[in-house]
Write a protein that binds this DNA or RNA. Structure first.
Length: 282
DNA sequence: CTAGGATCCTGTCAGC
DNA sequence: TGCTGACAGGATCCTA
């Protein structure tokens, strides 16, 4: 579930918390969630955190990096003098940890802890030599992010999948990096494009607009602090839905389109729940 | 090569 | 209450 804005929010927030700290121990509660030996990261200090599409890369001071992918339900929850939590919004953000969804626990020398929680176990943390990060299969195959692409290049990339529904194509990280199910729906709504249109029918101007939509909706979400603890739990302790801060269609089925007043409906496209305004999106 | 569907896994919710 | 099926903010693998 975490998409580019959520991962970027984690990158920024977590870096504040763990930069310079030394990992003193690693506890693995689920073997498939931590790929490789934990010994190579114990004793190392955190230098930096990078992001490639939806993947996080934690760089250590011993030439080792940890590639983390949260997939559908991953969360990073830091507990120390300061607290931070981001990723799939759930009560884990404010729960006693570790709990039954905790897959990996990173302990720091000074007593703080970082929990990698992941209900569905699709996500993972994987230590790798820092110099090998760019050669990692997933990272190496990533397309540029929307800010690093011109409309023309995006249009050409869409043309390679002209028979597939445009929504399925923009969810492909080898076509454009960062969009997931929420921001794909939001970007298509922004550009007034129906998600079932074949990618081959998208004009150069529409491709440009869709690219602008991708940038805009993700920037808005990063500004809103993409599903962090701060937005999940309001000051009075009640739950807040951070989608309310920017979503025009996602999760708004049955409500009115803010552009034209028609009802937002939920359909299925390429097996994914899809939210549209049938009047606005052609 | 592309397109489409199954698959990994746990948990929740609607409906009977 | 218990069961069943659908669904879930991702990506890969397999088949045609």
């Amino acid at each position: 579930m975490p998409e580019l804005p959520e991962v970027e929010t984690i990158r920024r927030g977590l870096l504040e918390c763990i930069k310079g700290k030394k990992i003193s121990d690693v506890k693995i509660f689920c073997d498939k969630s931590f790929i490789g030996p934990k010994e190579v990261i114990i004793g190392a200090k955190i230098l930096d955190i990078r992001r490639f599409g939806k993947a996080l890369v934690i760089d250590l001071n011993n030439e080792v990096s940890i590639i983390c992918h949260l997939r559908m339900t991953g969360q990073m929850i830091y507990r120390g003098a300061q607290e931070f939590a981001g990723g799939h919004p759930s009560d884990n953000f404010v729960a006693e940890l570790p709990n039954k969804q905790t897959r990996v626990e990173f302990d720091f020398e000074t007593g703080e802890k970082l929990f990698f929680n992941d209900q569905r176990k699709f996500g993972f943390c994987k230590p790798i030599q820092t110099e090998e990060v760019l050669k990692d299969k997933f990272i190496a195959s990533l397309a540029p992010e929307p800010w690093a692409m011109k409309g023309e290049e995006f249009y050409q990339r869409l043309q390679r999948h002209k028979g597939a529904p445009i929504k399925a194509v923009i969810l492909d990280q080898k076509v454009i990096a960062g969009l997931g199910n929420i921001y794909a729906d939001e970007a298509l709504y922004f550009a007034k494009i129906h998600p079932e249109r074949r990618a081959g029918t998208i004009s150069p101007d529409e491709a440009e607009l869709l690219l602008e939509g991708a940038r805009t909706v993700m920037e808005r979400s990063i500004e809103a602090g993409g599903s962090t603890m701060a937005t999940y739990r309001k000051a009075d302790g009640t739950k807040g839905n951070y989608l309310d801060l920017f979503a025009e269609v996602f999760g708004r089925q049955g409500k009115e389109c803010r552009r034209c007043g028609a009802e937002i409906v939920k359909i299925k496209v390429s097996g994914r729940g899809t939210h549209i305004c049938e009047r606005c999106q052609k």
